[in-house]
């Protein structure tokens, strides 16, 4: 796995909007293009979309950073399924209000007590979260934040 070197961005902590409550830390996996969980990842959390630049990488335990999800509403199902099997991301950071991603997170909380936060940031701030950076995503209040963790 290649990870870009992560200079701690000067804008940390980033302010964010909590799309789904929770608090988690992990290493960023920054996706260059949107990902459809359905058809794009398997139930173990590996990216299997043949056309995706991060194909073969695993979302499990990562802070998944992507502009938005893509595609079918069945993606909610697949994300919930990954969280059920504890193969899902630790947190998701988006630049769009993606209802399908949040729905998967809501369902996983209801059924399995999952605590995976979903945070919304600006496009510019999204770009300051490179793969390899270790961060804490705190959506336990409405005014959410993302801080880098040494």
């Amino acid at each position: 796995m290649t990870t870009s070197s992560a200079d701690t961005p000067s804008r940390m902590p980033l302010s964010a909007v909590a799309l789904h409550a929770g608090r988690a830390s992990g290493t960023v996996l920054h996706l260059d293009t949107p990902l459809s969980f359905w058809g794009g990842t398997d139930h173990d959390g590996t990216i299997i979309d043949a056309h995706h630049p991060q194909r073969g990488q695993s979302v499990t335990g990562r802070v998944l950073v992507m502009r938005a999800g893509r595609g079918s509403s069945s993606s909610s199902y697949v994300l919930a399924e990954q969280l059920r099997q504890q193969c899902g991301p630790a947190a998701i950071v988006l630049a769009e209000r993606d209802a399908i991603v949040v729905l998967g997170a809501i369902v996983a909380r209801e059924l399995y007590g999952s605590d995976m936060p979903v945070a919304l940031v600006t496009d510019d701030d999204l770009a300051t979260l490179p793969t390899g950076l270790t961060v804490t995503v705190d959506c336990s209040t409405e005014a959410a934040s993302i801080t880098s963790t040494p």
Partner: peptide
């Protein structure tokens, strides 16, 4: 049916 989570949700 797409997987267990859908069934768990409806059953709950």
């Amino acid at each position: 049916f797409h997987g267990q989570s859908g069934l768990d949700f409806a059953a709950r």
